[in-house]
Design a protein around this nucleic acid. Sequence first.
DNA 1: TCTGGGGTCCTAGGACCC
DNA 2: TCTGGGGTCCTAGGACCC
Length: 417
Amino acid sequence: MTRSPATDSPDSAPVIQRRVLHVDVDAMFVQCAIMADPAGLADRPLILVGGRPEQRGVVASASYGCRAYGVRSAMPMATALRLCPEATVVPVAREMVRAKSRELRQVLEAWAPVAAMASVDEAYLDLTGTEALYRHEPLEGTARRIQRDVKLRTALDVSIGGGSNRLVAKLATSFAKPRGVFIVPAGGEEEFVGGLEIGDLIGVGPSLREELRGRGVSSMHSLRALDVSTLAGWWGEDRARWLWRRCRGIDTTPVAEDDVTRSVSSETTFPRDVRELEGLEEALLAQTVDAAGSLRKKGLYARTITVKLRDADFRDRSRSRTLDEAVQTERAIFRVARELLRDLRRQRDTPARLIGVGLTNLSETGESAQGVLLDVAPPVESERDRAVARAADRLRAKFGSAALQPGRLVRPSREEP
DNA sequence: TCTGGGGTCCTAGGACCC
DNA sequence: TCTGGGGTCCTAGGACCC
């Protein structure tokens, strides 16, 4: 094994030379839509819409044909259709995406001792230690074999970037697209990243870029000319070190299979803004049922409940409350969520375009944070409540989500188990 | 043209505790 | 009269990513 070149500071820590690949599905949603409807959609310019089709939707993904016209992810549908009027608009094929994502993970896990999905359509592989196993084949060769194997076994086209760490591997992927492989040689990280724009760095978005520009820093070169203490004077030590390392292609975060869920949420944008409390509560209940269902599906409980409103003027507001014990039923969650919603409305009574509920502070048991409290106060959620909710889950799984309406779940009838 | 939905992580102030 | 310092938790908001 070789050692990475020494870095000056901060946190210079020469480590074993790692071999990291970043595997990214090319236009995943587009590929999945075509797989779901090969006869209807193949070879057409496609726009995958997020949210409700045609109504306040944005582009979730676009085929390369549409991208040539300037269509981009997150673009409002109206804009996208003006740029590419002949595009076919279809909703995301969620089931297919889930299935293909699972297949992809299975294929990749066979190739690397450590494989971690970073989202539905991308994964990191750490091949460190496989040098002998792969007969000291260059990383590029292994990447190409993985690419072919993925195509063979999942039918997905992927691009693969590689390098000595996650950051560099991911940045390399954009040079590999579509259907290519791009490896940054060990020792070439700093030079490689030096050729990029500041905004290309993962984690540097429009806001930070604008702030940098305001301070006279608009090129990677000028960013690198700054020392840590200057950066720390602007944003504090942590962020300063992060950016200092980032713009030099230094990244020691491990490729870890940490798939712990930290939050579960469900939100919806109304076709038209909603002002009446009644309409908002109705929607809040539906989102609560949805989020609580996901929570139970993962076998989790939540202590913190957050209600979010997006006002008509696009201002986001939220209220949250942390309970002494963790819950997982819509019954318990909605009781709190409804109060939080009323709180939000007291603060500002204005039409809303979005409502959502978020669950955090998750655990795998429904026990109290401070056990003694249970002896004092009755639990906000009984075992019976939980049993009812799980029975409803089974019914929905069997007969479809229309089998039980949210309204009935709030006050379960006696006949239910 | 008018802005989805699912997440993760960070910050900053206040409460509270030692 | 002057008034610590560190840690943790909670809340609200925001940046960012796919």
